[in-house]
Write a protein that binds this DNA or RNA. Structure first.
Lengths: 170, 170
DNA sequence: TGAAATTACTTTAAGCTTAAAATAATTGTC
DNA sequence: GACAATTATTTTAAGCTTAAAGTAATTTCA
């Protein structure tokens, strides 16, 4: 590569041109490839078998775990998407009769959404098949490997969150 | 978490339900969460620091590795996105003067795209910073852990590809 | 109390993404 | 050489996604 100019804050410990972080970069690309591959396949199957989009399925999955429903804001946090995104998704699911919206009891700004009976039935049917797909896709991994991956990904997640937080508060 | 008890709906065919694949499902969710978290942060930083979108950065990254350029089809395959998607991205990058399009010598259907000098310069500058971000985000992982993750993700990828292929040919 | 700040949500504009259909050029087959 | 099949790309329609700005309700606190 090229020699690179050392930035002004040379008093910090990174005064030398940092070693290249090729290993981390390749790990990130592999992680991304893996996820993209699987996500694409799941999206395709949901569309082909159930005529549903992945974002709608994800939203329903969150609501299925919350029998009493939750606010759009909570949904947005759990899905890790923007508020406006959830507004639109909920709108379309409500149009389909799969989702119910009601005003929050103590806060007139908020509304609580939950699955309708039909929505719950539809989701449960899809979820069962979906679980089989996932089992199939990860089928070559043994129980021990799954456990290892879980642990390493947990560590990765907390590493990423740490980087996010540190930047946020600096 | 819940302990695998099947809630509600006990009257449905829950009794003959095959072994649950909860471990695989949780692994998939964790993989997705991890990737989404990191991808979102990278997108945010690219936008804030360089005013570029992640898809455009990804496209440029592919072209940077191919000094002689490549066809849109090849780009689409490598990026794992649809052809139409690449058409639009390339269009916008060409408008910005970062990308050059020329007819393929032997095939009048195809066009070969490559980075302009400006595009290459812009990408290299972004890539250096990007690599530092990734190193920071994965900073809590040791070399051994990175190696382990690489291996397990390679296995996961091949497991997923196998599931895709088998379905495709059945 | 009441103004300021915060919170929950919606709207908007721009861009990303896909599947499917359409167009145009090339290749295979007889 | 015809002509069917394939390939490379573009177009279209629908939906997803975000950031930023806007609206309305709630909370904070002097």
């Amino acid at each position: 590569m090229d020699e690179g100019i050392i930035p002004l804050d040379a008093e910090t410990k990174v005064s030398e041109r940092p070693a290249d972080h090729e290993a981390e970069l390749r790990l990130w690309l592999r992680l991304l490839t893996c996820t993209t591959l699987i996500e694409g396949e799941v999206r395709r199957r949901l569309r082909d078998e159930f005529d549903v989009t992945l974002p709608r399925f994800d939203l329903m999955a969150q609501l299925d775990k919350a029998p009493n429903g939750m606010t759009l804001g909570e949904l947005s946090q759990r899905m890790m998407v923007s508020n406006g995104n959830v507004t639109g998704l909920a709108e379309r699911l409500a149009e389909q009769g799969l989702l119910d919206r009601r005003a929050a009891p103590n806060d007139r700004r908020a509304q609580i959404v939950s699955l309708t009976a039909e929505g719950r039935r539809a989701f449960r049917a899809m979820a069962r098949t979906h679980e089989d797909w996932i089992a199939e896709i990860f089928g070559s991994l043994g129980a021990g490997e799954i456990e290892q991956l879980m642990a390493l990904l947990a560590k990765t997640k907390s590493s990423a969150r740490k980087a996010l937080t540190e930047r946020q508060t600096s």
